[in-house]
């Protein structure tokens, strides 16, 4: 067997908890592509949101510690799957890398750690797939083409905004559509793919989040989506949480499956995908039998 290439992987707390299907499927598809996601040792929670005030070095310490862990491991990069971790770590790296004054202050403060040299860069797995592996290789690995499946990409915020960390064009991204096509599925166009779902406002303004996510899902359904694909565990929670409410309040409400992009890949690769909603599983199976007969 060929040796797997290593990627220094930062899971984040949500992938170890409510979003475990994201990690399970992510590991499986990367292995199928010849890579192993090697978990960073002793990582700590990045703090979820990047501190937006310039004088607040305190809240950079969490993310910078994670960059130090990568440096200790001899790696010059960190790969994330969770798009919120991506944004927080990436913004912290841009905040300190190359800024000697900030580096000195933070290093002086963390006197129990080795000094962070400011050389670790942060990337999202979608960038690795697009820029290093390439859609052709992804397509070559497909064993169960998802032909006939309509996929609504939901980018959310943190892969695309602010501009300096965007992994794609913030207003017209294509990376999830390109991935969808490599899996032989059909990406659909709808007005809400780069909109915000309301994020953590679900804690104390749940009604606002329900209203927004309902709009997002209705637009995707009208455009003919069979499934919504995301890379953010918070988007995933918000959309799913709202659906539970809709199922409860609207008679005959038909649920829209919501999965991570790695789960869609796993379906196409025929590898471990974690929990897939039954309706989607049935749909994929049906598509493949029809093709088999035809």
């Amino acid at each position: 067997m060929n040796k797997l290439e290593k990627l220094t992987y930062f899971p984040g707390c949500t992938l170890k908890d409510t979003a475990s299907d994201f990690e399970i499927s992510g590991m499986a598809v990367m292995e199928a592509l010849g890579y192993v996601l090697e978990e960073l040792e002793r990582w700590n929670c990045c703090g979820t949101v990047f501190s937006l005030t310039d004088d607040d070095l305190m809240h950079q310490i969490g993310p910078v510690r994670d960059l130090i862990r990568a440096q200790e491991a001899g790696s010059e990069e960190i790969i994330t799957l969770c798009s919120m971790c991506y944004a927080t770590l990436k913004r912290s790296s841009l905040f300190v890398n190359g800024n000697q004054e900030r580096l000195d202050k933070i290093n002086a403060f963390m006197n129990k750690e080795i000094d962070y040299e400011g050389k670790v860069s942060v990337h999202h797995l979608l960038e690795v797939l697009r820029d290093r592996i390439g859609w052709e290789k992804v397509e070559e690995r497909v064993t169960n083409p998802l032909e006939g499946l309509s996929v609504a990409p939901f980018y959310g915020c943190t892969l695309l905004r602010p501009q300096e960390i965007a992994i794609d064009d913030p207003d017209a991204p294509t990376v999830l559509q390109d991935l969808t096509q490599a899996l032989w599925a059909t990406p659909i166009d709808y007005a809400y793919s780069v909109e915000c779902c309301g994020a953590y406002q679900v804690v104390d303004h749940r009604d606002v989040v329900i209203e927004r996510t309902h709009r997002i899902m209705s637009a995707a359904r009208r455009a003919g989506a069979d499934v919504i694909v995301t890379s953010c565990p918070l988007c995933h929670f918000n959309l799913s949480d709202t659906q539970k409410e809709l199922v409860r309040t609207i008679p005959d409400y038909e649920e829209m499956p919501i999965i991570y992009f790695t789960q869609l890949m796993a379906l196409g690769f025929g590898v471990e995908a974690g929990k897939i909603p039954a309706s989607l599983k049935a749909k994929v199976k049906r598509l493949q039998t029809v093709k088999g007969e035809g």
Binding site: D17, T18, V49, C82, Y200, V202, V203, L234, F237, D241
Partner: peptide, 26 residues
């Protein structure tokens, strides 16, 4: 502008960590 006292036990259990941490950080 948000406090744990304002949330029921049920809500705290229902909400993912990512939402609670983000909300409290903000």
């Amino acid at each position: 502008h948000v406090s744990l006292d304002g949330l029921s036990h049920r809500e705290i259990r229902r909400l993912p960590q990512i939402a609670i941490v983000a909300s409290f950080r903000k």
